[in-house]
């Protein structure tokens, strides 16, 4: 776990790389917007776990925020995990299916 100031440094370094390193291109604006959007999305999604139980939502919220800050920039990983590689899709497919079965069958 990193402190808030180190994650700020990380984010700044990440943005600096975009702007001064490889040049400021229109593709990079997409990545930066995507990164910020994704962070907000998963934080809101974590908050939504309150529909199952309130303490779970608080735990998820803290966990997701911490992990997201720790792993910034996340968008590279997101793009990789969402590639159209057959095995990768198959892997996620199995995970989703197992979670759905587990939640509906043993969740209640």
């Amino acid at each position: 776990m990193t402190s808030i100031s180190t994650s700020y440094e990380k984010l700044k370094k990440f943005l600096d790389e975009f702007i001064s390193g490889n040049g400021y291109t229109n593709i990079m604006t997409g990545y930066i917007t995507g990164e910020l959007q994704f962070l907000i999305f998963i934080i809101v999604l974590a908050a939504l776990f309150r529909m199952f139980s309130f303490p779970l939502a608080i735990i998820m919220l803290i966990l997701v925020t911490a992990l997201a800050l720790y792993f910034t920039p996340t968008i590279i990983g997101v793009e990789k995990e969402n590639s159209n590689d057959l095995n990768r899709v198959l892997y996620w497919f199995l995970i989703y299916f197992a979670i759905i079965i587990a939640i509906t069958l043993w969740g209640g």
Binding site: V78, N82, I103, G107
Partner: peptide
């Protein structure tokens, strides 16, 4: 009427919505 059915459907929809739009940002 089964428990957790709607919740599963809601979560799938939200994940689709957000992944779709975030990855659309990265396309060229």
């Amino acid at each position: 009427t089964l428990p957790f059915v709607k919740e599963v459907m809601i979560f799938l929809s939200i994940i689709t919505m957000m992944l779709g739009v975030v990855i659309a940002l990265l396309q060229i």
